[in-house]
Amino acid sequence: MKKILIATVKPFAPVAVKKISKIFEKAGYEVRLLERYFEKQELLDAVKDVDAAIIRSDIFDEEVLNAGKNLKIVVRAGAGYDNVDLKVASENNIVVMNTPGQNANAVAELAIGLAILGLREQFSGKPGGEMRGRTLGLHGFGFVARNVFRIARAMGMKVIVYTRYSKAAAAAIGLKVTNSLEQLYEKSDIVSIHVPARGEHLKSVSYEVLQHLKDGSIIVNTARKEVINEPDLVRIMTEKPGIKYMSDLTPDCEAEFEEKFPGRFFFTPKKAGAQTAEANLNAGLAAAEQIVDFFEKGDTTYQVNK
């Protein structure tokens, strides 16, 4: 009998756990639950003899992966998977998957909400602005960005995008693709960032790009803080006092923001993009189905450590 661990410091909703468990029980698998654990040793003990694991923001580093002697697959219920050591997983012949698209609408709605929060001066009583008629620039064009486009278009916005790898897909649905990242930032009233924290995207939002922003524009980041060059962001916000930064994650230089830019930033207390009941359920069910398909059919469609 396959043993499946659901390891979640931030637990799934009870209804999600129930439905996830039903998928495994139907397949004849045993489900083990580790929620809200406080010590890493609890995770190390729990992973020792399981065949698969579903995780959220939980850290599966070298120590944890090596402890999972029987592990064959780890599925991150969500899009990002920088909390898993892919190199060690590959060395241990462990397949790592994510569940792309399952949280996309939730994150997209947050991105739009953060943009509105910035435009309306965080509802402080100061006169603000409206989304309609403004230009929204999508930095990246994955699942979340496509949902942002859908919502923004319904709000009467003009939407443009910069993407290296999805130009045809963007053009096919009527999006104007800019020639460069610099051009995207130059033409946008609001920039929404949707790129992963790896490779060429690390610190890609640098001064060379940010200097093209209009004074008064808004940067919305629901991706990862690692894609931002934080000293460069501080520099451009100093040079252009109308720029605002609305983020679903707190930068390392939070204290500097509080000192220099009051009223011009907002950071969620903890990453909130996927924190909806619907996303919670969708990602969990997808993760469970992927594990069953992996064991029963050899399906590795969503493997990220190839």
Rank of each mutant, 00 (worst) to 15 (best):
A7F: 10
V9A: 09
A13C: 04
K18D: 15
I20V: 12
I20T: 03
F24P: 00
E25K: 14
K26M: 06
Y29F: 15
E30P: 00
E35F: 14
Y37G: 09
F38Y: 07
F38V: 12
Q41S: 13
E42H: 09
L44R: 07
D45R: 12
K48S: 13
D51P: 01
S57C: 07
S57G: 15
I59H: 11
D61W: 08
G68S: 08
G68M: 09
K69C: 02
K72L: 05
V75E: 01
R76Q: 09
G78I: 03
D82L: 05
D85Y: 01
A89H: 01
N92W: 04
N93C: 05
V95P: 00
V96C: 08
M97S: 06
T99M: 02
P100C: 11
N103H: 12
A104H: 05
A106E: 00
G113A: 12
L119K: 07
F123Y: 14
G125P: 08
G128R: 03
G128A: 07
G129H: 09
M131F: 08
M131P: 01
G133C: 08
R134W: 03
L136M: 14
G142M: 04
V148K: 03
R150F: 10
A152L: 10
V159S: 06
V161N: 02
Y165W: 10
Y165T: 14
A168V: 13
A169G: 00
A169W: 00
A169N: 07
G174I: 02
K176M: 06
S180V: 11
Q183G: 06
L184D: 02
L184Y: 06
I190W: 02
I190D: 01
V191L: 05
V191N: 03
P196V: 07
S206G: 04
Y207F: 14
E208K: 15
L213Q: 01
K214G: 08
G216Q: 07
I219S: 01
I219N: 00
V220E: 02
A223C: 11
I228A: 04
I228W: 03
I228R: 01
N229F: 12
P231E: 11
V234M: 13
R235D: 06
T238D: 11
K244V: 02
Y245H: 04
T250E: 15
T250I: 15
P251N: 08
P251F: 11
C253S: 14
A255M: 08
E258I: 04
E258D: 10
F261M: 09
G263C: 06
K270F: 12
K271D: 03
A274C: 07
Q275C: 11
Q275W: 03
N282D: 10
E289G: 04
E289V: 04
D293K: 15
D293P: 01
F294N: 03
G298N: 09
G298L: 09
D299K: 15
T300L: 04
